[in-house]
Design a protein around this nucleic acid. Structure first.
Lengths: 198, 198
DNA sequence: TAAGTTTGTTACTGAGTAGTAACAAAGCGT
DNA sequence: ACGCTTTGTTACTACTCAGTAACAAACTTA
Protein backbone atom coordinates (compact mmCIF):
# COMPACT_ATOMS: atom_id res chain seq x y z
CA UNK A 1 0.00 0.00 0.00
CA UNK A 2 1.25 3.46 -0.84
CA UNK A 3 1.48 5.91 2.00
CA UNK A 4 -0.89 8.85 2.37
CA UNK A 5 0.36 11.45 -0.09
CA UNK A 6 0.31 15.19 0.37
CA UNK A 7 -0.97 16.38 -2.96
CA UNK A 8 0.28 19.88 -3.61
CA UNK A 9 -1.81 22.56 -5.26
CA UNK A 10 -0.12 25.50 -7.02
CA UNK A 11 -0.95 29.11 -6.19
CA UNK A 12 -3.37 29.85 -9.00
CA UNK A 13 -5.39 26.69 -8.56
CA UNK A 14 -5.48 27.16 -4.79
CA UNK A 15 -6.76 30.71 -5.16
CA UNK A 16 -9.61 29.56 -7.32
CA UNK A 17 -10.58 26.69 -5.04
CA UNK A 18 -10.58 29.00 -2.05
CA UNK A 19 -12.53 31.69 -3.87
CA UNK A 20 -15.12 29.17 -5.00
CA UNK A 21 -15.67 28.09 -1.43
CA UNK A 22 -15.69 31.67 -0.17
CA UNK A 23 -18.14 32.76 -2.84
CA UNK A 24 -20.70 30.12 -1.98
CA UNK A 25 -20.44 30.55 1.77
CA UNK A 26 -20.26 34.36 1.86
CA UNK A 27 -23.20 34.71 -0.48
CA UNK A 28 -25.37 32.04 1.08
CA UNK A 29 -24.66 32.62 4.76
CA UNK A 30 -23.43 36.20 4.97
CA UNK A 31 -19.97 37.52 5.70
CA UNK A 32 -19.93 37.72 9.48
CA UNK A 33 -21.63 34.34 9.76
CA UNK A 34 -18.84 32.61 7.86
CA UNK A 35 -15.51 31.99 9.52
CA UNK A 36 -12.24 31.54 7.70
CA UNK A 37 -12.15 28.03 9.16
CA UNK A 38 -15.48 27.27 7.49
CA UNK A 39 -14.08 28.38 4.14
CA UNK A 40 -10.96 26.31 4.73
CA UNK A 41 -13.07 23.25 5.42
CA UNK A 42 -15.36 23.82 2.45
CA UNK A 43 -12.37 24.24 0.18
CA UNK A 44 -10.85 21.06 1.55
CA UNK A 45 -7.71 23.04 2.22
CA UNK A 46 -5.40 24.08 4.97
CA UNK A 47 -5.69 27.37 6.81
CA UNK A 48 -2.17 28.44 5.93
CA UNK A 49 -2.91 27.83 2.27
CA UNK A 50 -5.60 30.44 2.58
CA UNK A 51 -3.54 32.99 4.46
CA UNK A 52 -0.69 32.61 1.99
CA UNK A 53 -3.01 33.69 -0.83
CA UNK A 54 -5.07 36.26 1.07
CA UNK A 55 -3.49 38.39 3.75
CA UNK A 56 -6.70 38.69 5.79
CA UNK A 57 -10.40 37.92 5.81
CA UNK A 58 -11.04 41.41 4.48
CA UNK A 59 -8.76 40.56 1.58
CA UNK A 60 -10.84 37.47 0.90
CA UNK A 61 -14.05 39.48 1.01
CA UNK A 62 -12.66 41.96 -1.49
CA UNK A 63 -11.63 39.14 -3.83
CA UNK A 64 -15.09 37.62 -3.48
CA UNK A 65 -16.72 40.93 -4.33
CA UNK A 66 -14.47 41.53 -7.29
CA UNK A 67 -15.48 38.16 -8.64
CA UNK A 68 -19.17 38.92 -8.11
CA UNK A 69 -18.67 42.20 -9.87
CA UNK A 70 -17.37 40.37 -12.93
CA UNK A 71 -20.38 38.06 -12.82
CA UNK A 72 -22.75 41.02 -12.77
CA UNK A 73 -21.25 42.67 -15.81
CA UNK A 74 -21.11 39.39 -17.64
CA UNK A 75 -24.84 38.92 -17.05
CA UNK A 76 -25.52 42.52 -18.01
CA UNK A 77 -23.61 42.19 -21.27
CA UNK A 78 -25.37 38.93 -22.06
CA UNK A 79 -28.79 40.52 -21.71
CA UNK A 80 -27.74 43.57 -23.72
CA UNK A 81 -26.16 41.50 -26.47
CA UNK A 82 -29.45 39.78 -27.20
CA UNK A 83 -30.87 42.95 -28.80
CA UNK A 84 -28.12 44.98 -30.48
CA UNK A 85 -28.88 48.68 -30.79
CA UNK A 86 -32.34 48.31 -29.30
CA UNK A 87 -32.11 49.86 -25.83
CA UNK A 88 -35.78 49.31 -25.01
CA UNK A 89 -35.56 45.57 -25.64
CA UNK A 90 -32.16 45.41 -23.96
CA UNK A 91 -33.53 46.83 -20.72
CA UNK A 92 -36.63 44.63 -20.74
CA UNK A 93 -34.43 41.63 -21.41
CA UNK A 94 -32.16 42.50 -18.51
CA UNK A 95 -35.09 42.61 -16.12
CA UNK A 96 -36.55 39.40 -17.53
CA UNK A 97 -33.22 37.63 -16.96
CA UNK A 98 -32.92 39.23 -13.51
CA UNK A 99 -36.42 38.07 -12.56
CA UNK A 100 -35.53 34.54 -13.55
CA UNK A 101 -32.35 34.55 -11.48
CA UNK A 102 -34.15 36.17 -8.54
CA UNK A 103 -36.68 33.35 -8.30
CA UNK A 104 -34.02 30.65 -8.11
CA UNK A 105 -33.60 28.71 -4.89
CA UNK A 106 -29.96 29.74 -4.47
CA UNK A 107 -30.61 33.43 -5.01
CA UNK A 108 -29.85 35.60 -1.99
CA UNK A 109 -30.27 39.10 -3.34
CA UNK A 110 -27.62 41.59 -4.37
CA UNK A 111 -24.34 40.62 -2.76
CA UNK A 112 -23.20 44.24 -2.75
CA UNK A 113 -26.21 45.48 -0.83
CA UNK A 114 -25.78 42.51 1.49
CA UNK A 115 -22.19 43.47 2.16
CA UNK A 116 -23.22 47.07 2.73
CA UNK A 117 -25.74 45.88 5.32
CA UNK A 118 -23.04 44.00 7.21
CA UNK A 119 -20.43 46.78 6.96
CA UNK A 120 -21.90 50.13 7.96
CA UNK A 121 -18.58 51.94 8.23
CA UNK A 122 -18.53 54.10 5.07
CA UNK A 123 -14.74 54.22 4.87
CA UNK A 124 -14.26 50.48 5.11
CA UNK A 125 -12.64 49.18 1.91
CA UNK A 126 -15.49 46.80 1.14
CA UNK A 127 -17.94 49.67 1.37
CA UNK A 128 -15.95 51.70 -1.09
CA UNK A 129 -16.01 48.80 -3.50
CA UNK A 130 -19.79 48.62 -3.15
CA UNK A 131 -20.07 52.32 -3.81
CA UNK A 132 -17.93 52.28 -6.93
CA UNK A 133 -19.87 49.33 -8.27
CA UNK A 134 -23.21 51.07 -7.74
CA UNK A 135 -21.87 54.09 -9.60
CA UNK A 136 -20.85 51.96 -12.54
CA UNK A 137 -24.34 50.48 -12.59
CA UNK A 138 -25.87 53.93 -12.55
CA UNK A 139 -23.75 54.93 -15.50
CA UNK A 140 -24.66 51.80 -17.43
CA UNK A 141 -28.36 52.47 -16.95
CA UNK A 142 -27.92 56.12 -17.84
CA UNK A 143 -26.12 55.09 -21.00
CA UNK A 144 -29.05 52.90 -22.07
CA UNK A 145 -31.82 55.34 -21.14
CA UNK A 146 -29.98 58.08 -23.01
CA UNK A 147 -29.74 55.81 -26.04
CA UNK A 148 -33.52 55.41 -25.78
CA UNK A 149 -33.92 59.07 -26.61
CA UNK A 150 -36.45 59.77 -23.87
CA UNK A 151 -37.09 63.25 -22.51
CA UNK A 152 -35.73 62.53 -19.05
CA UNK A 153 -33.13 59.75 -19.22
CA UNK A 154 -31.92 60.47 -15.71
CA UNK A 155 -35.27 59.98 -14.02
CA UNK A 156 -35.92 56.85 -16.04
CA UNK A 157 -32.53 55.41 -15.12
CA UNK A 158 -33.15 56.02 -11.43
CA UNK A 159 -36.60 54.46 -11.69
CA UNK A 160 -35.11 51.34 -13.21
CA UNK A 161 -32.35 51.17 -10.60
CA UNK A 162 -34.89 51.40 -7.81
CA UNK A 163 -36.93 48.63 -9.43
CA UNK A 164 -33.81 46.50 -9.73
CA UNK A 165 -32.80 47.00 -6.12
CA UNK A 166 -36.39 46.41 -5.09
CA UNK A 167 -36.33 43.12 -6.97
CA UNK A 168 -33.18 42.09 -5.14
CA UNK A 169 -34.71 42.96 -1.80
CA UNK A 170 -38.01 41.27 -2.52
CA UNK A 171 -36.28 37.99 -3.31
CA UNK A 172 -34.94 37.97 0.26
CA UNK A 173 -38.37 37.76 1.82
CA UNK A 174 -40.48 35.93 -0.72
CA UNK A 175 -37.85 33.72 -2.35
CA UNK A 176 -39.13 31.77 -5.33
CA UNK A 177 -42.72 32.77 -4.56
CA UNK A 178 -42.58 36.48 -5.24
CA UNK A 179 -45.53 37.63 -7.31
CA UNK A 180 -43.89 41.05 -7.51
CA UNK A 181 -40.75 39.71 -9.14
CA UNK A 182 -42.76 37.76 -11.70
CA UNK A 183 -44.41 41.04 -12.69
CA UNK A 184 -41.17 42.97 -12.98
CA UNK A 185 -40.69 42.61 -16.74
CA UNK A 186 -44.23 43.82 -17.41
CA UNK A 187 -43.77 46.68 -14.97
CA UNK A 188 -40.54 47.75 -16.63
CA UNK A 189 -42.17 47.61 -20.04
CA UNK A 190 -44.89 49.98 -18.88
CA UNK A 191 -42.39 52.34 -17.30
CA UNK A 192 -40.32 52.44 -20.48
CA UNK A 193 -43.31 53.03 -22.74
CA UNK A 194 -44.59 55.80 -20.53
CA UNK A 195 -41.20 57.48 -20.73
CA UNK A 196 -41.17 57.11 -24.51
CA UNK A 197 -44.73 58.26 -25.25
CA UNK A 198 -44.38 61.08 -22.76
CA UNK B 1 -19.43 61.19 52.33
CA UNK B 2 -22.13 58.70 51.40
CA UNK B 3 -21.01 55.35 50.08
CA UNK B 4 -21.41 54.33 46.44
CA UNK B 5 -25.07 53.36 46.06
CA UNK B 6 -26.45 50.61 43.89
CA UNK B 7 -29.44 52.29 42.28
CA UNK B 8 -32.00 49.66 41.34
CA UNK B 9 -34.07 49.79 38.18
CA UNK B 10 -37.43 47.99 38.01
CA UNK B 11 -38.26 45.48 35.27
CA UNK B 12 -40.25 47.74 32.95
CA UNK B 13 -37.78 50.57 33.01
CA UNK B 14 -34.88 48.18 32.55
CA UNK B 15 -36.53 46.61 29.52
CA UNK B 16 -36.94 49.97 27.87
CA UNK B 17 -33.39 51.10 28.59
CA UNK B 18 -32.03 47.85 27.19
CA UNK B 19 -34.27 47.99 24.12
CA UNK B 20 -33.23 51.57 23.43
CA UNK B 21 -29.60 50.54 23.44
CA UNK B 22 -30.27 47.42 21.38
CA UNK B 23 -32.29 49.36 18.83
CA UNK B 24 -29.57 51.88 18.17
CA UNK B 25 -26.75 49.37 18.02
CA UNK B 26 -28.56 46.66 16.03
CA UNK B 27 -29.81 49.13 13.48
CA UNK B 28 -26.60 51.11 13.14
CA UNK B 29 -24.04 48.31 13.28
CA UNK B 30 -25.94 45.19 12.28
CA UNK B 31 -26.99 42.23 14.39
CA UNK B 32 -23.97 39.97 14.18
CA UNK B 33 -21.62 42.91 14.65
CA UNK B 34 -23.17 43.82 17.99
CA UNK B 35 -22.47 41.72 21.05
CA UNK B 36 -24.69 41.46 24.07
CA UNK B 37 -21.83 42.99 26.05
CA UNK B 38 -21.89 46.02 23.78
CA UNK B 39 -25.60 46.48 24.43
CA UNK B 40 -25.00 46.04 28.15
CA UNK B 41 -22.37 48.75 28.09
CA UNK B 42 -24.44 51.12 25.97
CA UNK B 43 -27.39 50.67 28.29
CA UNK B 44 -25.15 51.33 31.28
CA UNK B 45 -26.43 48.11 32.75
CA UNK B 46 -25.31 44.77 33.98
CA UNK B 47 -25.31 41.65 31.85
CA UNK B 48 -27.56 39.73 34.20
CA UNK B 49 -30.09 42.54 34.06
CA UNK B 50 -30.31 41.90 30.35
CA UNK B 51 -30.59 38.13 30.57
CA UNK B 52 -33.28 38.42 33.24
CA UNK B 53 -35.45 40.38 30.82
CA UNK B 54 -34.54 38.56 27.60
CA UNK B 55 -33.80 34.86 27.62
CA UNK B 56 -31.33 35.05 24.72
CA UNK B 57 -29.87 37.33 22.09
CA UNK B 58 -32.48 36.03 19.65
CA UNK B 59 -35.13 37.13 22.09
CA UNK B 60 -33.60 40.60 22.13
CA UNK B 61 -33.53 40.71 18.34
CA UNK B 62 -37.21 39.78 18.18
CA UNK B 63 -38.09 42.50 20.68
CA UNK B 64 -36.05 44.99 18.65
CA UNK B 65 -37.87 44.00 15.47
CA UNK B 66 -41.27 44.20 17.10
CA UNK B 67 -40.48 47.70 18.19
CA UNK B 68 -39.31 48.66 14.69
CA UNK B 69 -42.50 47.19 13.31
CA UNK B 70 -44.51 49.53 15.49
CA UNK B 71 -42.45 52.46 14.28
CA UNK B 72 -43.11 51.55 10.67
CA UNK B 73 -46.88 51.45 11.06
CA UNK B 74 -46.85 54.62 13.06
CA UNK B 75 -45.04 56.39 10.23
CA UNK B 76 -47.35 54.81 7.67
CA UNK B 77 -50.45 55.96 9.52
CA UNK B 78 -49.03 59.44 9.91
CA UNK B 79 -48.50 59.80 6.18
CA UNK B 80 -51.93 58.35 5.39
CA UNK B 81 -53.67 60.56 7.92
CA UNK B 82 -52.47 63.70 6.18
CA UNK B 83 -54.90 63.14 3.28
CA UNK B 84 -58.07 61.41 4.46
CA UNK B 85 -59.87 59.43 1.76
CA UNK B 86 -57.43 60.48 -0.96
CA UNK B 87 -55.36 57.37 -1.72
CA UNK B 88 -53.33 59.05 -4.47
CA UNK B 89 -52.13 61.81 -2.17
CA UNK B 90 -51.68 59.36 0.69
CA UNK B 91 -49.27 57.23 -1.32
CA UNK B 92 -47.34 60.20 -2.66
CA UNK B 93 -47.11 61.56 0.87
CA UNK B 94 -45.79 58.27 2.19
CA UNK B 95 -42.99 58.26 -0.37
CA UNK B 96 -42.20 61.89 0.26
CA UNK B 97 -41.86 61.19 3.98
CA UNK B 98 -39.87 58.04 3.26
CA UNK B 99 -37.49 59.95 0.99
CA UNK B 100 -36.90 62.47 3.73
CA UNK B 101 -36.12 59.79 6.30
CA UNK B 102 -33.94 57.90 3.82
CA UNK B 103 -31.64 60.88 3.31
CA UNK B 104 -30.98 61.34 7.01
CA UNK B 105 -27.55 60.64 8.38
CA UNK B 106 -28.75 57.97 10.80
CA UNK B 107 -30.75 56.08 8.20
CA UNK B 108 -29.50 52.58 7.52
CA UNK B 109 -32.19 51.14 5.25
CA UNK B 110 -35.01 48.78 6.06
CA UNK B 111 -34.19 46.99 9.28
CA UNK B 112 -36.25 43.98 8.20
CA UNK B 113 -34.37 43.49 4.96
CA UNK B 114 -31.17 44.00 6.90
CA UNK B 115 -32.11 41.26 9.34
CA UNK B 116 -33.06 38.99 6.44
CA UNK B 117 -29.62 39.54 4.94
CA UNK B 118 -27.95 38.46 8.17
CA UNK B 119 -30.26 35.48 8.78
CA UNK B 120 -30.57 33.36 5.65
CA UNK B 121 -32.22 30.40 7.38
CA UNK B 122 -35.89 30.69 6.30
CA UNK B 123 -37.24 28.92 9.39
CA UNK B 124 -35.38 31.09 11.86
CA UNK B 125 -37.89 32.98 14.05
CA UNK B 126 -36.52 36.38 13.04
CA UNK B 127 -37.01 35.47 9.39
CA UNK B 128 -40.61 34.54 9.98
CA UNK B 129 -41.17 37.89 11.62
CA UNK B 130 -39.68 39.61 8.58
CA UNK B 131 -41.92 37.62 6.29
CA UNK B 132 -45.11 38.38 8.18
CA UNK B 133 -44.22 42.05 8.26
CA UNK B 134 -43.65 42.16 4.51
CA UNK B 135 -47.02 40.53 3.97
CA UNK B 136 -48.74 43.13 6.09
CA UNK B 137 -47.03 45.83 4.03
CA UNK B 138 -48.18 44.20 0.82
CA UNK B 139 -51.74 44.18 2.09
CA UNK B 140 -51.56 47.80 3.15
CA UNK B 141 -50.38 48.85 -0.31
CA UNK B 142 -53.01 46.66 -1.98
CA UNK B 143 -55.64 48.29 0.17
CA UNK B 144 -54.63 51.75 -0.98
CA UNK B 145 -54.21 50.90 -4.69
CA UNK B 146 -57.61 49.23 -4.64
CA UNK B 147 -59.08 52.36 -3.10
CA UNK B 148 -57.56 54.27 -5.99
CA UNK B 149 -59.89 52.45 -8.37
CA UNK B 150 -57.22 51.66 -10.94
CA UNK B 151 -57.55 48.82 -13.44
CA UNK B 152 -54.74 46.72 -12.02
CA UNK B 153 -54.33 47.47 -8.30
CA UNK B 154 -52.14 44.43 -7.80
CA UNK B 155 -49.50 45.41 -10.34
CA UNK B 156 -49.50 48.96 -9.06
CA UNK B 157 -49.04 47.81 -5.47
CA UNK B 158 -46.11 45.63 -6.43
CA UNK B 159 -44.54 48.46 -8.40
CA UNK B 160 -44.76 50.71 -5.37
CA UNK B 161 -43.35 48.05 -3.06
CA UNK B 162 -40.38 47.54 -5.37
CA UNK B 163 -39.80 51.29 -5.45
CA UNK B 164 -39.96 51.43 -1.68
CA UNK B 165 -37.51 48.58 -1.20
CA UNK B 166 -35.30 50.11 -3.87
CA UNK B 167 -35.31 53.36 -1.93
CA UNK B 168 -34.24 51.54 1.21
CA UNK B 169 -31.44 49.78 -0.65
CA UNK B 170 -30.25 52.92 -2.40
CA UNK B 171 -29.85 54.74 0.88
CA UNK B 172 -27.29 52.15 1.92
CA UNK B 173 -24.90 53.06 -0.85
CA UNK B 174 -25.50 56.72 -1.49
CA UNK B 175 -26.56 57.86 1.96
CA UNK B 176 -27.69 61.46 2.09
CA UNK B 177 -26.48 62.08 -1.46
CA UNK B 178 -28.85 59.88 -3.41
CA UNK B 179 -30.24 61.64 -6.44
CA UNK B 180 -32.52 58.66 -7.01
CA UNK B 181 -34.16 59.00 -3.61
CA UNK B 182 -34.74 62.70 -4.11
CA UNK B 183 -36.64 61.83 -7.29
CA UNK B 184 -38.77 59.14 -5.68
CA UNK B 185 -41.85 61.27 -4.97
CA UNK B 186 -41.94 62.51 -8.57
CA UNK B 187 -41.42 58.98 -9.87
CA UNK B 188 -44.26 57.64 -7.76
CA UNK B 189 -46.53 60.43 -8.93
CA UNK B 190 -45.89 59.48 -12.54
CA UNK B 191 -46.45 55.80 -11.84
CA UNK B 192 -49.74 56.54 -10.10
CA UNK B 193 -50.99 58.84 -12.86
CA UNK B 194 -50.11 56.32 -15.52
CA UNK B 195 -52.09 53.69 -13.65
CA UNK B 196 -55.04 56.03 -13.32
CA UNK B 197 -55.16 57.41 -16.90
CA UNK B 198 -54.57 53.90 -18.25
C1' DT C 1 -38.11 43.41 62.65
C1' DA C 2 -38.09 39.11 59.87
C1' DA C 3 -38.61 36.45 55.58
C1' DG C 4 -38.96 36.45 50.79
C1' DT C 5 -38.13 38.52 46.44
C1' DT C 6 -35.82 41.27 43.10
C1' DT C 7 -31.73 43.46 41.49
C1' DG C 8 -26.47 44.46 41.23
C1' DT C 9 -21.86 42.49 40.77
C1' DT C 10 -18.13 39.47 39.98
C1' DA C 11 -16.21 35.77 38.01
C1' DC C 12 -16.57 32.22 35.34
C1' DT C 13 -17.48 28.38 31.42
C1' DG C 14 -16.97 26.54 26.99
C1' DA C 15 -16.94 27.46 22.44
C1' DG C 16 -15.61 30.09 18.59
C1' DT C 17 -12.70 33.85 16.30
C1' DA C 18 -8.64 35.74 13.12
C1' DG C 19 -4.22 35.06 12.48
C1' DT C 20 0.75 32.92 13.17
C1' DA C 21 5.00 30.15 14.36
C1' DA C 22 7.57 26.27 13.31
C1' DC C 23 8.68 22.44 11.00
C1' DA C 24 8.04 18.62 7.61
C1' DA C 25 7.53 17.19 2.94
C1' DA C 26 7.44 18.03 -1.82
C1' DG C 27 9.08 20.09 -6.05
C1' DC C 28 12.65 22.72 -8.86
C1' DG C 29 16.90 24.31 -10.84
C1' DT C 30 21.80 23.59 -10.86
C1' DA D 1 23.20 15.12 -5.31
C1' DC D 2 22.70 19.95 -3.58
C1' DG D 3 20.40 24.06 -1.92
C1' DC D 4 16.19 26.93 -2.48
C1' DT D 5 11.48 27.82 -2.73
C1' DT D 6 6.75 26.47 -2.16
C1' DT D 7 3.27 23.89 0.08
C1' DG D 8 1.12 20.79 3.89
C1' DT D 9 0.33 20.14 8.81
C1' DT D 10 0.03 20.79 13.63
C1' DA D 11 -0.35 23.44 17.37
C1' DC D 12 -0.74 27.50 19.18
C1' DT D 13 -1.83 32.70 20.72
C1' DA D 14 -4.75 36.18 22.25
C1' DC D 15 -9.23 37.50 21.99
C1' DT D 16 -14.33 37.69 21.73
C1' DC D 17 -18.67 35.57 22.18
C1' DA D 18 -23.32 33.98 24.50
C1' DG D 19 -24.79 32.51 28.57
C1' DT D 20 -24.61 31.25 33.83
C1' DA D 21 -23.48 30.40 38.88
C1' DA D 22 -23.19 32.39 43.20
C1' DC D 23 -23.52 35.74 46.36
C1' DA D 24 -24.29 40.50 48.12
C1' DA D 25 -27.27 44.40 48.53
C1' DA D 26 -31.63 46.56 48.20
C1' DC D 27 -36.59 46.67 48.26
C1' DT D 28 -41.31 44.56 49.65
C1' DT D 29 -44.56 42.52 52.47
C1' DA D 30 -45.96 40.74 56.76
Amino acid sequence: MTEAKRPRVPREKAQEIILNAAEELFYQEGIHAVSVDAIVERAGMNKMSVYRQFSSKTDLILAYMTRKQDVFWQEWEESIAKHPNRPREQLIQFFADLAERATNEQFRGCCFINVAVEFPDPVHPVRELVCSHQKRIRNAFLDRTTALGTANPCELAYTLILLMEGTYADSQTYGTDSAAIRMVPAIVEKVLDQALHN
